[in-house]
Design a binder for these strands. Structure first.
Length: 230
DNA sequence: GCGACAG
DNA sequence: ATCTTGTCGC
């Protein structure tokens, strides 16, 4: 096979000051690829992290589900320490290191990974989903519970309603209603997917709950891990 | 200058 | 993110 159309996962130092992290985001942003998925998605994963109150202990987990049933087929978890504080706009520098370790332990790599946070719907167009996609070279989707940046028109109140997110003249993502009259979720491209791919998959993964199953299941798993330990 | 600010 | 019980609504 010549002409590989994929790239080598990005690697860089994590021992950075907030200022250096921002400079790195600008550098890596240029490497984010937005392209349509070519294969039908069979395995979709969700990643999440949980913390203790006055502690930097991190409980991380990734679960892999098989479409269209959304049944769990693999999982990996890890308990470690956070080495970067939570700074709005720099979430990936806090969450990526633990998630990368879990990713390595995951026995089955998914076709797409959904992250609990934004992708391009970020002030520097480089949210957690973009960063983690570059780090793993896995297609990723940003699925956040709250708006970070951007504006959108009024959203219809029925399931499936979509309103696009715009910021400084750019379309950066969308607001998606996953349940009738329930607060929506914020979907954006992370890496190697289109916004349409992301929205279609998010809806496919939300047959019943507001939070798409991949992210929801990952959240449940890490919380159980924290309860059993912490 | 002031307020806002993913998880 | 975390700290937390009951409660309103489909």
């Amino acid at each position: 096979m010549s002409n590989k159309k994929w790239s080598i996962p990005i690697q860089h130092s994590w021992n950075l000051s907030p200022k250096e992290a921002i400079a790195l985001q600008h550098e890596l942003q240029a490497l984010v690829k937005v392209e349509a998925l070519t294969q039908k998605v069979r395995y979709i994963a969700g990643a999440d992290i949980s913390f203790n109150k006055g502690d930097d202990t991190v409980y991380a987990g990734i679960v892999v589900l098989e479409l269209p049933d959304l049944k769990e087929v693999a999982r990996a978890t890890l308990i470690t320490k956070a080495n970067f504080p939570y700074v709005p706009g720099l979430l990936s520098f806090r969450e990526s290191p633990p998630l990368l370790e879990v990713w390595k332990k995951l026995p089955l790599k998914p076709d797409v990974l959904m992250l609990d946070g934004h992708g391009l719907a970020h002030n520097r167009r480089f949210g957690l989903a973009c960063h983690f996609g570059l780090l793993t070279d896995c297609p990723t989707i940003g699925c956040a519970k709250k708006l970070f940046v951007g504006k959108h028109d009024v959203l219809g109140d029925t399931k499936g309603s979509i309103a696009y997110l715009h910021d400084k003249g750019e379309e950066i993502g969308a607001v998606l209603r996953t349940r009738d009259r329930v607060h929506p979720v914020y979907i954006s491209v992370g890496y190697r997917v289109t916004l349409k791919n992301a929205l279609d998959l998010a809806l496919q993964c939300a047959p019943k709950y507001r939070i798409p199953i991949p992210t929801r299941q990952a959240h449940i798993v890490v919380n159980e891990l924290r309860r059993a330990n912490g």
